[in-house]
């Protein structure tokens, strides 16, 4: 039985490659999370390869790119209960691909394939939500102490966001923010790692506890927009909650408005429906300019009311 503690994807990949070359069956490997280091003695990689036994020690296996991409994605998955489970599933799948062919990944009802699938989905959803719900706050320079980053020069704009992703995705999502906010100096802080961009270079540092960030005075514009773009006659709270689960609300300044908007919606709608209607000629009667403007267009548009030739070929 071999034992390994794995830190990240590249680390797993190196170990897995050696194990494959030495033809080590997945049932003979025990994978451990990095914290376990010291509690047991990890196997030495060099010791695994027995040149006499290993047939393919120098050859490399052809692994489908698609698997490696998904494995990399799944490697970001954090499993609170069993943090190293992903590594053993990945190795087992790798082993099966090498021995039984690429078709293994097509077995969509196979437990391991499904597990890979759901890990990838969870990570990709988490990334997507992070891109969506990270909210930058413009902060004053003194706030920089919070991020441990050097102060941008005086008067320069600096933006900071706090976010708690469910999986270890900060490094893989950071390039997205770089490409989008290239001309901005920013930091995204999370408990599992921070990304900083100074308009030249991306730096990734260790995670931090939740900092105290001042709220951004621009919030009020965003809240005003949010409240007014909502149509109370279409209230569908459940649909909102399924796309924007409550756990994200703490990042969203606009979430403070949800309660009032929702509570008042039905009454506002009923009021609108019950209110008296307004004479459609009101403005025409009051202003000759309006009447003239409209009459010119109406005259041009006059057609025989019995025919309906709204055709899609231009005349």
């Amino acid at each position: 039985m071999y034992s390994f503690s794995v830190t990240d994807f590249e680390n797993w990949r190196t170990i897995a490659r050696t194990l494959l070359q030495a033809n080590v069956d997945p049932s003979n490997v025990s994978w451990q999370p990095p914290e376990q280091q010291g509690l047991f003695s990890p196997s030495a990689l060099e010791a695994i390869i027995d040149p006499a036994k290993s047939v393919r020690s120098s050859g490399t296996h052809k692994i489908p790119r698609q698997f490696l991409q998904r494995a990399k994605q799944a490697a970001c998955f954090s499993d609170m209960k069993d943090p190293a489970r992903k590594w053993s599933i990945l190795y087992s799948l790798l082993w099966r691909i090498v021995h039984y062919g690429n078709g293994t990944l097509l077995l969509t009802s196979d437990p391991e394939v499904r597990c890979l699938d759901s890990m990838c989905k969870a990570v990709s959803r988490d990334k997507h939500k992070m891109k969506a719900f990270v909210r930058f706050q413009q902060v004053a320079n003194h706030n920089v102490a919070v991020t441990g980053q050097e102060c941008p020069e005086d008067g320069a704009e600096y933006y900071v966001a706090w976010f708690e992703p469910s999986h270890a995705i900060v490094e893989s999502v950071a390039p997205f923010f770089v490409k989008r906010f290239t001309g901005m100096h920013w930091s995204i802080l999370t408990p599992g790692g921070c990304a900083h961009w100074d308009m030249e270079q991306l730096t990734v540092t260790e995670g931090v506890p939740k900092p105290d960030i001042d709220t951004d005075s621009f919030d009020i514009f965003w809240k005003a927009y949010y409240c007014n773009i909502f149509n109370p006659a279409r209230l569908k709270e459940q649909a909102m909650r399924s796309e924007m689960p409550k756990k994200y609300w703490k990042y969203l300044p606009e979430a403070a408005c949800i309660h009032d908007l929702t509570r008042g919606a039905t009454a506002v709608t009923e009021q609108m429906i019950d209110a008296p209607t307004t004479n459609s000629d009101r403005a025409r009667e009051k202003s000759r300019i309006v009447a003239q403007f409209q009459n010119t267009l109406r005259l041009k548009n006059r057609i025989d009311p019995d025919t309906d030739n709204f055709s899609d070929t231009p005349p």
């Binding site: 997507h128 891109k131 969506a132 719900f133 949010y226 773009i229 909502f230 149509n231 109370p232 279409r234 209230l235 569908k236 709270e237 459940q238 649909a239 909102m240 796309e243 924007m244 969203l252 606009e254 949800i258 908007l261 929702t262 919606a265």
Partner: peptide
């Protein structure tokens, strides 16, 4: 595209 928020009518912003 990315939906950055949802209003209580379930629509994406």
């Amino acid at each position: 595209g990315i939906c950055h928020s949802y209003t209580p009518d379930g629509r994406c912003i």
